[in-house]
Amino acid sequence: MNIGSIAMGAGFLLVLIGLWGILTRTHIIQIIVSFSVVDTGVHLIMVAAGYMHQRTAPIISEGLAASDAPSLVVDPLPQALVLTAIVIGLGVTALMLAFALRIHEKNDTLEIKNIERLRW
């Protein structure tokens, strides 16, 4: 059992917890909070997929010559993808919150039970 599989399990559990929140909560802000928990879980899974045991960060320095890099560094590709995913995640959250403000402006509430058109 190494760090990578623990992180991957934790990521899967975070996604599940967030999904449960999205499906069961009735306040829109809480639904958006659950979305951000799912986001964090997905990032954790992706970074865990690039992790390799007993390897170092992908930065070449005095202690790490460029020729040794392939056998000493973790996978840099998932890290680069997660980097952009985090920034876009913030954009998506902000957009959801702007929609929530609009809904609140119109209906004076964010509780789904009290909004006729959002009930299911």
Partner: peptide
């Protein structure tokens, strides 16, 4: 912190600056 332990310092910096501070402030 988990990213830092998984030797991904770039991701750790981004998550700490954006995911945990700016997102909370917007909320």
């Amino acid at each position: 912190l988990l990213y830092l332990l998984m030797s991904a310092p770039d991701v750790a910096m981004t998550e700490a600056a954006i995911g945990s501070s700016l997102a909370t402030i917007i909320f």
